[in-house]
């Protein structure tokens, strides 16, 4: 499984969403990485990409609502990080659609996506959890 217990930041509702996000990324990567003809794999790749992509938006929004609720001081900066990444994902999805899902580009996107998400959770989101622990804001 792609999700690891050590990615937990200690805020139960956020951890639950992160696990859901990683599960959807895993479905996308499984479709993408399995042996076989690219064209035959494409319907599943498109489906899992969309399923994952939708949840990126849902999760980032929910996380920002939570940050507002707890009065997180880095909310604005965190929002910009989310926005930049969401824009990147949406732009890629748009380009894939227009260009017929070229394999190289989709593989590149997937590699970056996974590394970015892991780092975002274990570094950037962890700061939010440090704040919660310090302020007792949970």
């Amino acid at each position: 499984m792609m999700w690891k217990e050590k990615y937990k930041i200690g805020i139960p509702q956020i951890d639950k969403q992160h696990k859901e996000l990683f599960d959807r990324v895993e479905q996308f990567l499984t479709a993408l990485r399995k042996e076989g003809d690219w064209q035959e794999k494409l319907p599943e790749i498109k489906k899992t990409l969309l399923f994952m992509q939708n949840y990126v938006v849902v999760h980032f929004d929910a996380e920002e609502v939570y940050q507002k609720k707890i009065g997180y001081p880095d909310l604005q900066q965190h929002h910009l990080i989310h926005k930049e990444f969401t824009d990147y994902v949406m732009q890629c999805a748009h380009d894939f659609e227009k260009e017929g899902y070229p394999e190289q580009s989709v593989q590149k996107f997937a590699g970056k996506l996974l590394a970015w998400l892991i780092n975002h959770v274990v570094a950037t989101d962890l700061k939010m959890s440090d704040y919660v622990k310090k302020e007792g804001a949970l």
Partner: peptide
Amino acid sequence: TLSGMEADRLDDFATSMLGEMANI
């Protein structure tokens, strides 16, 4: 380690993942 999946070649998925790590 990161993907939990088998990897045996330096394809675009692998190199792009490392590129992002170097970027971070």
